[in-house]
Amino acid sequence: MTAKRLVLLCILLVFCSLGCPGSGSATAVSTFLHQIEAAAATTHSFTCDFIQEKHLAMFKKPVMFKGSLAIVRPDKLRWEFTEPLPSALLLSGVSGMRCNGEAPPQAFSLDADPVMKIVAEQLWSWLGGNYTHLEEIYTMELVDATTLRLIPKEKMIADFIAGITIRFDRTTLQPATVEILEATADSTKLLFSHYRLNIEPAKSLFCDCDSRE
């Protein structure tokens, strides 16, 4: 597994491990993960809004993006920024599309684009609803009743990711905030809100850049 792949895996964990309060011990973590899986099993699709805050050394100051996420399991996804720069990533089966504001959409096939193939593979391995196997890659601990911290076990991941902290909504079992701390001290914070579970988003949402809910 390449370093990039593992980094992607980490970040996708954030997007996809939806729902898990708990506390302290390994048993508690395990119970907590099963709760997430149970919640995922009853969630065929959802949409939510998010705010992303990036603290990168490459940027002069923190950067904030707003957007929305729509998912229909097992293979449809729309990750869309609405502010300040509209853009979106669409996935539908092996086809995908990059939407970049006013620029023409860039279609890609997962068969031919190795980077996006890895992104999609990791994405769907997490969105499939089976979370317990993440324990093989991360040491998991419950910081408090609603906050889970993931520490990479393998050095290759640890070279990029120092840790991921996820705070879950107590009632919906969906992540409320996710904070990714990179090995370089860069960090990304995501705040999720307005979950709408088991709705049926329009199919065009996943193959048309201009489609709206």
Binding site: M58, W79, L89, N100, I180
Partner: peptide, 21 residues
């Protein structure tokens, strides 16, 4: 540079950060 800026903020940003640098 604008494209890089967007990519750094996208889901693939962490993976591509070094490459963009």
């Amino acid at each position: 540079l604008l494209e890089g800026y967007k990519l750094l903020n996208s889901p693939t940003g962490i993976a591509l950060g070094k490459q963009i640098q």
